[in-house]
Amino acid sequence: MLTDTERREIEAELPHYPRRQALCIEALKVVQRHRGWVNDEALRDVGDYLGMSEHEVDSVATFYNLIYRREVGRNVIHLCDSVSCWVMGCDRVREHLEQKLGIRTGETTPDGRFTLLPIPCLGDCDRAPSFMIGRDLHGNLNLENIDTILERYE
């Protein structure tokens, strides 16, 4: 079941839309904010609340890049691998991250500190290569400054 806080946060969006099911994406984001990711139970909770089946909600959840259907670490690194960042060497950044964290893209460190995922263009092309950790954008990356940035995330 949705917690009271989750329900309140979802309901706050209700007046902005003429139909309840329009809240599906918002509801998934709310639940993810509180639970870290969207598991099957979360799908059922959102579905029960909005009058949708679990599978309908899943079809929405799996469509969007920023809804996690698998468990993620405390900090998700979204590495931009689109064309401007690629020209500016984002493959070197990925190699460095994978080596330093001991994981491959798509995986989470054993201590649950970091998950590494790719993301389409972050719109930071004039400061490429770039990544986003949580909701913080970091540009002008090179092999020297990455480690210092990572240290800020527990």
């Binding site: 099911q21 329009a22 994406i25 929405v60 890049n65």
Partner: peptide, 20 residues
């Protein structure tokens, strides 16, 4: 919640309606 196709205007409308 992120997906490139949302920039296509009719896909955007579906996203605003809470759909794929």
């Amino acid at each position: 919640a992120g997906r490139y196709i949302c920039g296509e205007e009719t896909a955007l409308l579906n996203a605003l309606e809470g759909r794929r």
